[in-house]
Amino acid sequence: MRALVIDDSRAMRMMIGRLLTQQGFEILQAGDGQEALDVLGACEPHELPVLCTVDWNMPVMDGLTFVQSARKRTELRDLTLMMVTTESENHQVVRALAAGAHEYLIKPFTAEAMADKLDLLGLDPSRRVA
């Protein structure tokens, strides 16, 4: 089970990656939306991650644009997209959901909050095994 962590901050990729590793994920990383599309494009179908965590403000291609692009690709239809961002206004959450994000986690967040989101998405380890 793989997850792609998309964030321009290496510190944040490490932190999110650590939390997801604890939840049993193998981690891929990308520093912006375009790099993320490239990583996904290089995956064989069976290698595709099930989850992307997506920062919003990034150079080259921002997270919202990435979500819109990913949702247009039929080969990525099973990919769960979760924004993990410091953008915290109500209208920003609405925009991300309208673009096709499945969940939204506002920075800062706790390890428990990440686990709760995975649970909501049916991606926590206990449910995955079943």
Partner: peptide, 20 residues
Amino acid sequence: ADLDDTVGELVNVVGGNVKS
């Protein structure tokens, strides 16, 4: 670069919340 990234991300998260 590690130092830039870490302190930069901390101010980014604080800044995002201040922006709201």
